[in-house]
Design a protein around this nucleic acid. Structure first.
Length: 375
DNA sequence: AATGCACTCAACCGCACATCT
DNA sequence: CAGATGTGCGGTTGAGTGCAT
């Protein structure tokens, strides 16, 4: 059906913004407590710009919460990690870096980080060593896979908690009830993870997945199925989220769960993955562990990286919840994302190896209560 | 001093999606 | 339900700047 251009550029100014234009835009937005319709804004603000240009100028430069100045090492590290999860979804990445814009992050990536990774022999798109592509079929593990495993665990925990709560509380929770993992699961990051799960499975079939499924896989899958069924009939969630969550959980392919978790069973595969030297953000060179056909992608200076143990950092999760349970989505996402980023990168996947059967019934080292905001 | 090159980053473009009519 | 409109997003461009020759 063809689309008309968002704005007619004829007679409109283009190029860099002058201080006067900035002031006019700022004044208008301040006076009106917001921008309103971007299309009508230029006319109302007396600007010879198209609405799109105004929006861009505001979101990328004039917004009061913009943090200017060079990126810190931590920010760069976070961007690299998030890029490994989310890919070129700059807006999603930017949402995890307060005060930074997607444009800024995109520029940083294209001008610095991408080149840096390439120089180190790391494919900036896949975050895998360039010369290890041949290994991916025999060693399916990747940073993404590790994140997948963590996500899957987080999701299972959330499901388990929902199931538990549904039996404990007959009335629906308040809509404002913080629900870190459910929210995160429904967030951009969760979405990315779900996509990742699908893509990764098809792109990189695990040797394990081709073998008959193991007991361990079966255990985990069973839990998912059970929880999913429980949830279908539960009424613990409020409003649209409830429906969404039910859908997503019920859609869960339990075979995939087993598949993915088994893929990352170090007992079977044996590998160590990404470790980052945060001090200089240098990825150290790829090493292949030929002994067990696994491989180490990166090595890090573990002194530099504070890896939290593979359990919820209760302090983080509960931060702010003492005073109130009304953390907004950003807060909870941040917290949960922190969890994700605190993944025990320098450990292998022993958390899965350790009593996976136990894990299925009792999420060992995952204190269920630590997910729950005090009522 | 003049020129060329590489780099950075603000801004633009076009597409996709959500919402409105 | 279809088309129109508004907005957000990611890819790309090009002006400005610094440095090397």
């Amino acid at each position: 059906m063809g689309r008309s251009p968002c704005c007619d550029n004829r007679g409109l100014k283009r190029g860099p913004w002058s201080a006067e234009e900035d002031e006019a835009l700022l004044n208008y937005i301040n006076k009106n407590n917001g921008h309103g319709s971007w299309r009508s804004l230029p006319k109302l603000a007396g600007l010879l710009r198209c609405g799109k240009s105004c929006r861009l100028r505001w979101t990328n430069y004039l917004r009061p919460d913009i943090k200017r100045g060079p990126f810190t090492k931590d920010e760069e590290k976070l961007i690299i990690q998030l890029h490994g999860i989310l890919g070129n979804r700059w807006a999603a990445i930017a949402s995890q870096l307060p005060g930074r814009t997607d444009n800024e992050i995109k520029n940083l990536w294209n001008t610095h980080l991408k080149k840096r990774l390439l120089l180190m022999g790391i494919d900036p798109q896949t975050h895998k060593p360039v010369d290890s592509n041949c290994l991916t079929s025999t060693a399916p593990a990747s940073l993404a896979t590790r994140h997948m495993a963590q996500w899957e665990s987080a999701r299972l925990e959330a499901e388990a908690r929902l199931s538990r709560e549904s039996s404990l509380f007959s009335q629906p929770l308040e809509k404002s009830e913080p629900d870190y993992f459910l929210r995160l699961w429904n967030s951009e990051v969760g979405e990315a993870f779900r996509n990742l799960t699908t893509v990764d499975k098809s792109a990189c079939p695990s040797p394990m997945s081709q073998a008959s499924s193991s007991t361990k896989c079966g255990s985990v899958s069973a839990v998912t199925t059970e929880v999913g069924n429980t949830l279908t009939g539960s009424s613990t969630m409020a409003g649209d989220q409830n429906e969404d969550m039910e859908d997503k959980i019920c859609q869960t392919n339990t075979e995939d769960v087993g598949h993915n978790i088994c893929q990352t069973n170090t007992e079977d595969v044996g590998y160590k993955i990404c470790q980052i030297n945060t001090e200089d953000l240098e990825y150290k060179s790829c090493q292949t562990n030929t002994e067990d056909m696994g491989y180490k992608i990166f090595q890090s200076n573990t002194e530099d990286v504070e890896y939290k143990p593979w359990q919820l950092n209760t302090e983080d999760v509960m931060a702010g919840s003492d005073s109130s349970c009304s953390n907004d989505l950003e807060d909870s996402s941040d917290t949960a994302l922190q969890l994700l980023l605190n993944f025990p990168i320098n450990n292998d996947m022993s958390f899965l190896e350790d009593n996976v059967d136990d894990y299925a019934t009792t999420p060992a080292r995952w204190t269920p209560n630590s997910f729950i905001c005090p009522l």
